[in-house]
Write a protein that binds this DNA or RNA. Structure first.
Lengths: 220, 220
DNA sequence: AGGATATGCATACGGCGTAAGTGTGTCAAC
DNA sequence: GTTGACACACTTACGCCGTATGCATATCCT
């Protein structure tokens, strides 16, 4: 036990966190499909099977990645005299930003079967509920509002990331693949589908939600 | 060549649609992960590579599956004297129902990179836009509302299917895995998170959207 | 010093998507 | 009827994947 002073690590012991960081980097850079045990192992300079000393299986690893993502959630500064409506808006923007910073996170959410069980992973959800309750909503209403607004945020980002419908086309003339003949409304709306301002649209829907919530709840 | 009267098919020629149906059946029964070229081939009584005579690759096959799902969209009956608000609600329910009938469809949406380009696949989207425009919304507003409400529907179903947060737990005492100590609001709301009535909550959020839309648009 | 434990490595299995090449059943024209 | 073309199904093979199993080594406790 003597010279355990400098003993520490030449091997740099390889932690869950180091693994999760590497996996997250791969996911952000090359997409979720590129995240394989072998690939992550290579990234941390190790053989694939060595990862299993730290994560139970791939599902577990992806859980760590998601947790890592959630840790990045940046809580909006609570401004003096700000009402809960502004707080809610800020929180919603923070969520959207997080999901856009990690475009594969949505796919990750969609693929996972186990929901989430770590403190770090759940803290942003707790923050949202806290804000809603501070607005005067009952616990039951807070949950309701959380599902409504949370659902909206996730769905909207899914939509704007182009995964739901081809709204991201640069220009109608460049996407003539779509047979507008039998789809009159799509044809008519095509210019707006093509060039829409997602920032404004996100705000639009969010307002619908928040304003509706305010009248329903009678807060101010 | 003579008796080509009854010649038709002993081989039953294997079409895109037969393949798509088989794949969809597998997906519904065993999840998206179970849908592999080999598995689908086995289902239609053929070798894996034979599928490539009908679909370009797996992405193409999954596109067919999604198209097949969209074909099942049941357009709500247009009731005499019904206002667009009721129509919109009915349409939203039809969407939610479709997504719940095929629980893996969301994952499929999330995984696909190419948006969708078939008439059948886009028709439900066209129906939604048509209803919104018939409510008096401008084409631009219709797109905006579509993104807002459509996003909400997808996100909410994602939420209720338990993929986002562990809201589907049967009973708080059976999910003590969640460390409520540092998550006060989650702890407080846990009973409602556990036993919430998703049908009512869907309606709640949908009303927020539709009512907000009505006041914003001045329709009635 | 010596044993326990933690950790990394090598090998192997079955499944995946699909590129490339090999039949074989169907039909048109002769 | 024979022949040639062609569409279609099959076979084989490659390099990925997740991970079970077994072994080697480095570290720590006594």
């Amino acid at each position: 036990m003597g010279r355990t002073a400098t003993p520490a690590k030449q091997r740099t012991p390889l932690t869950r966190e180091r693994i999760a960081d590497a996996a997250l980097a791969i996911m952000d850079a090359e997409g979720l499909d590129a995240v394989s045990m072998r690939r992550v192992a290579r990234e941390v300079g190790v053989e694939a099977m060595s990862l299993y000393n730290h994560v139970h299986d791939k599902e577990d690893l992806l859980g760590c990645v998601l947790e890592q993502v959630m840790k990045e959630f940046t809580y909006p500064a609570r401004i003096e005299g700000e009402d809960w409506l502004q707080q809610g808006r800020a929180l919603a923007h923070a969520w959207r930003q997080l999901l856009r910073d990690h475009p594969s996170a949505l796919q990750l959410f969609a693929e996972r079967k186990t929901p989430m069980d770590s403190v770090d992973g759940l803290r942003p959800m707790d923050a949202a509920l806290t804000t809603l309750r501070s607005a005067g909503l009952s616990d039951s209403d807070a949950v309701q509002a959380f599902h409504a607004i949370g659902g909206y945020i996730f769905g909207f980002v899914m939509m704007e990331s182009g995964r739901l419908f081809g709204a991201g086309e640069a220009d109608p003339r460049e996407s003539p693949e779509i047979p507008t003949g039998q789809l009159p409304s799509i044809a008519a709306c095509m210019p707006y589908l093509a060039e829409c301002d997602f920032d404004a649209q996100f705000e639009f829907g969010l307002d619908l939600m928040l304003e509706g919530l305010r009248t329903k709840v009678g807060g101010g």
